[in-house]
Design a protein around this nucleic acid. Sequence first.
DNA 1: GATAAAAATGTAAACGCTTACAAAATGTAA
DNA 2: TTACATTTTGTAAGCGTTTACATTTTTATC
Lengths: 333, 333
Amino acid sequence: MNIYDVSEKAGVSIATVSRVINGSANVSSKTREKVLAVMEELGYTPNVFARGLGLNTMNTIGIMCADSSDPFLANAVYYLEQNLRKNGYDSFLCCTGYELSTKQNYLKLLLSKRVDAIILVGSNFLEAAKKDNQYMIDAANEVPVMLINGYLAHPNIYCTLCDDYQAVYDGTIRLIEAGYRRPLFLYCSRSYSALQKLSGFRDALSASGLPAPEESVCLCANDIAQTKELLCSLKGRGLVFDAVFGAEDSLAVGAVKYAREQGLRIPEEFAVVGYNNSMLAVCSEPELTSIDNHVETLSITTVSTLMRVLGGNDVPNKTTISNELVVRGTARL
Amino acid sequence: MNIYDVSEKAGVSIATVSRVINGSANVSSKTREKVLAVMEELGYTPNVFARGLGLNTMNTIGIMCADSSDPFLANAVYYLEQNLRKNGYDSFLCCTGYELSTKQNYLKLLLSKRVDAIILVGSNFLEAAKKDNQYMIDAANEVPVMLINGYLAHPNIYCTLCDDYQAVYDGTIRLIEAGYRRPLFLYCSRSYSALQKLSGFRDALSASGLPAPEESVCLCANDIAQTKELLCSLKGRGLVFDAVFGAEDSLAVGAVKYAREQGLRIPEEFAVVGYNNSMLAVCSEPELTSIDNHVETLSITTVSTLMRVLGGNDVPNKTTISNELVVRGTARL
DNA sequence: GATAAAAATGTAAACGCTTACAAAATGTAA
DNA sequence: TTACATTTTGTAAGCGTTTACATTTTTATC
């Protein structure tokens, strides 16, 4: 069944049917109703391919996410999808993994699918590593690119960030003021966002006049058990620390596990702060004090920014949203 | 740039270029190489819409998932996406939520996008509620429908399940044999899969000669805190129970929280078993004993079954995969 | 009622590909 | 060499829309 069947049954031309489908103004209401009725009766659905051929768009946004089983990313994907849909867009999802070449392939694929824009969540793009980002820049020359918690300077790249630097800075200051003089910062990727957090931590240490040795900051795997092991071995090697600030909740949970194993009382002897305020935070025992980076707001903002970009508006390339420290049992700040 | 540009530059007809694109056998290797070289040089990518118009397919599978932020579903989506990609298929993701009418709309949308098949993960379809499932049946008349952990009898619906009934039955028996004579079963949706688990629990009780009062089974919200509250109020109302079998890990974590609040020693005085062996299981303290339903295998099997279906093979409508009880701190079985 | 302007509708040409069928080139056997 | 089968290539007709432009109908003005 196609537009001809509808036009015939409705006694109008295909152009008129097309106009009705596309909500064009130049159709008399009598005609419109008749056509709509026929479409309903026949159960007609326009062929997306033919439509795409004519319009060269399919109202689809490509979402790239390294790993949709990460709770933060999964949440973001969920809210993005929801909000895109609300705005009449569909989404292609790609779970790219963390490898550069794979990401490049996925990106090519999305572009070949003629997506109207690309949203990248949990990107690893570093301002520094220009050459690794070139492919993203190339993409931005074709379609708008939205970065969630990532930053790349380009007129067609729009970034939505929560102020990771400030969040960690403030959190660390509060930890220190609460008496934890030897905090340790754990992170598990060299993403833009992670590096922001790192700087926040370092700056808070120096602002407080505390020593900030290289060992007060540690790159580890995004895994509860491995984080625990790492902390045990650090302790074994004589490192002294009385608190852990994790760049992800999973790392913080690892720290909680470590403290339990060492018999340290939380939060009296040992404090832990996480990041994302994910479901892990309330699962942990004691529950995690964690920074809530408002993933829903982040997603909603990204989508609404994108809609404005697609609408041809002039839009700032960087939007920062708020976050907040949620205090629970692992650190009474 | 289109196929004409390539054909002209390569000095062949567009039909030949098309044959090269589609890997047709009837092209001399000399010609093929020349065309490929030109495509490479021009950076040519076939237009998916035109392609779709001709072939009436875009090599895309629709994935419907109620809530991609649920860890189990998120994992499934991740593995599905990965495996589809490996097989040359792309995926449209829809996060449908749990409401029937919304699901129906999403389904319509996917069909209108001309997906080649639909994968439904964490479906709520109950064999009983025929009329609620009619729309799925309608879809199955158009394209193959894959159900993960769901069941619906239809020649074009293919179900991949882990044996939830047996898993819970066996787990419950082991709980009882370990001395917990008053287990409570918690579940949070009336999905096919949940009801299977429920039966397994009930049958295990009666097989053990234990009473199975109505209150030994309880429907609750999929939320840690609410589950804890529920258990507290049950206890307050005089219900006696010494173990909880949760149909989801989150419910089990709620039970762990309950036990802590009540000062019950786990697992000596109170045992907990979860389901899915998700990240929550290792986050909990003590870590959850949980049934691992092998989400990766479930996803891989679903995709490979789908590939066989799309390849025109005769495929059984029901595939059951194994699961296993992972014993950790909340129940030493 | 005639005329001009505005609104509604129709015609036909894209859009970029696939593929049935026709034609040409090549290979094989006598 | 010829006759015929096989492989390779080309031609042209779709696929189902959108939309510029042409045409017809309606409305407004005098």
